[in-house]
């Protein structure tokens, strides 16, 4: 799965868990929290949504890997590849 596809997935999930967030102009290398006014509960919702949709398990200590769209793509790439291959 390409990086852009993963970024789209994350933005799609953010639009669901934080309906007020304006996701059309999100920069890939800036922390999502700083651009979108997301709090720790919003990130928890993203984690739950990723589990629900793609059966991906993200341990608590790895939540910081979801900080930016770029880091999401790098971190989730191998995980998504593993579940789609299974």
């Amino acid at each position: 799965m390409g990086d852009q596809r993963i970024k789209d997935i994350i933005l799609d999930i953010i639009a669901v868990v934080a309906p007020d967030a304006e996701v059309s102009n999100v920069k890939s290398d800036v922390r999502l929290r700083d651009q979108l006014d997301l709090d720790s509960m919003d990130f928890l919702d993203i984690v739950m949504e990723l589990r629900k949709r793609y059966k991906i398990e993200i341990p608590k200590e790895e939540y910081p890997e979801l900080a930016t769209l770029d880091s999401c793509a790098a971190y989730l790439g191998p995980k998504l590849a593993a579940v789609t291959a299974a």
């Binding site: 509960m41 928890l44 739950m48 589990r51 059966k55 398990e57």
Partner: peptide, 20 residues
């Protein structure tokens, strides 16, 4: 409310593991 959600996330994770 929020702690309920935080713990529900943990429970969901365990239930997924068991189901798998």
């Amino acid at each position: 409310i929020n702690y309920g959600v935080i713990v529900a996330n943990e429970v969901d994770s365990l239930c997924c593991q068991s189901a798998n």
